[in-house]
Amino acid sequence: MALLRCRGLRKEFGGHAVLDHLDLTVAEHQVVALIGASGSGKSTLLRCVNLLEELDDGTIELDGEDISDPRVDPDRVRRRIGMVFQAYNLFPHLSVLDNITLAPRRVHRRGRAEAEAQARELLDRVGLGAKADAYPDRLSGGQQQRVAIVRALANSPRLMLLDEVTSALDPELVGEVLAMIRDLKADGMTMVLATHEMGFAREVADEVCFLDAGRVIESGPPEQVLGEPTQPRTRQFLRRIIEAGRL
């Protein structure tokens, strides 16, 4: 059964359609990679799914519920979706532990001890147990991004949205974040990730969607979309990526 189903999404910014009749279906435990040139609408799509942007048309269903209905409480929807941003967006005034326990304590009303125990366990699992009391500005970019992923996981989300989570990282730090996403996939997490790491998309994604001007113009298994693309725009994009040495 589809966990996420987007139909005919449209989003305009200043009269310009950034998403245009976009359809996307994600099954439970599936990993979908969104690829496409900068400005093709990947971030906007993820923000729309998380109800951070108001739609101009179309519907989004999560677990069969129409979450694009304006009567739906967006806070309740977002609790079921974890989102990770390109620039980490950790809260600089809170320690790593407080960053992670903020939502469990304030949103899910868990006790401090319980929330902290869960957070420490999650941190230990990704090798960041020693950083629990550090502040974000004391961590490397890779560590910050891993904390941001843990923070999203602490809500026990049904769906994870990852927006170019390695793009701001130094090359030698990319691996540790990708490894964490790999583990999430192994645990069966449903994910939609926008990425420029084609090699990683090929390895981890069940399906790759190529976005161009706000539409999915080609989608399918990674070997097909990345190996034998049928659309000229996809070929052109992949050629440019190869020239930039990223495949």
Partner: peptide, 21 residues
């Protein structure tokens, strides 16, 4: 505004976002 987006994406309400972030 990215701090607000991060807080809201965690399910915090507007008030909680103001108060804690």
């Amino acid at each position: 505004s990215s701090q607000l987006a991060a807080a809201r994406s965690l399910g915090l309400t507007y008030r909680q976002t103001m108060r804690h972030v």
